[in-house]
Write a protein that binds this DNA or RNA. Structure first.
Length: 169
DNA sequence: GAAGTGATTGTTACC
DNA sequence: GGTAACAATCACTTC
C-alpha cells in the first residue's frame, strides 16, 4: 500500500494551499506521531521489520472508514471541484462527530462484519504462516488451499454483506 | 514514471 | 495499559 512509507520530503506546500492546518489536538498528536515515525525512519520498521507481507489481510475499515466511503461520494457530488483527500477527510471527520449514535449504528454494523471477515482471513493467514514455518516447500500449496478456504468464506460473507448493505439503507 | 504526502477516526497489534 | 501503525482515497509534488 502507500500508507506512511516514509520516503523523503515531498509535499507540504500543496497541503497549505488546499486547506488550512488543523488545530485539533488529536490531529496534532497523530500527525506528530506520523511525522516522527516517518522522519525517524519508521520506528515500527525497527520493531517489526519482517512483518511486511503482501499476503497478509488488510485491516478492516473502522465504522468511520465505512462512513467515509459513502461520504466521499456525497462530498464529490456536492463539491466536484474539491478533490483533495485531506479536505474530504476533514469534512468527513466533522460530519462523523455530528452523527448520533443511532446514525452511526449501521456503519458500525458494517464495520463489525468486515472485522469478522478479517478475523477469518487472519485465521487462515496464521495457519498458512504456521505451515510455512513447518514446511517451506509446501507453502504454495498451503497458500492455494488457504486462499480457497478463505475465498469460500469470503464469498459467503460478501453475499451477506451485500444484503445487509441494502438493509442498512 | 514511481512513489510519497495529506486529513480524518477507529481499531489493531505490539511492547 | 499505552502508543504507534494502518485502514481508503487521489490530486499533486518530488526525485
Amino acid at each position: 500500500m502507500k500508507v506512511a512509507k516514509g520516503k523523503g520530503p515531498v509535499r507540504k506546500e500543496r497541503k497549505e494551499v488546499v486547506l488550512k492546518p488543523v488545530e485539533d489536538s488529536k490531529v496534532g498528536k497523530r500527525k506528530a506521531a506520523l511525522k516522527a515515525s516517518k522522519s525517524s525512519n519508521k520506528k515500527a520498521k525497527n520493531v517489526k521489520p519482517a512483518k511486511k507481507d503482501p499476503n497478509k489481510p488488510k485491516r478492516p475499515p473502522s465504522a468511520f472508514f465505512v462512513f467515509l466511503e459513502e461520504f466521499r461520494k456525497v462530498y464529490k457530488q456536492e463539491h466536484p471541484n474539491i478533490k483533495a483527500v485531506s479536505a474530504v477527510g476533514k469534512a468527513g471527520g466533522e460530519k462523523w462527530k455530528s452523527l448520533t449514535v443511532s446514525e452511526k449504528a449501521p456503519y458500525e454494523a458494517k464495520a463489525a462484519k468486515r472485522k469478522q471477515d478479517y478475523e477469518k482471513l487472519m485465521t487462515a493467514y496464521n495457519k498458512k504462516q504456521d505451515s510455512d514455518e513447518d514446511d517451506d516447500d509446501d507453502d504454495e500449496e498451503e497458500s492455494e488451499r488457504s486462499k480457497s478456504e478463505v475465498h469460500d468464506d469470503d464469498e459467503g460473507e460478501s453475499g451477506e454483506e451485500e444484503e445487509d448493505d441494502e438493509d442498512d439503507d
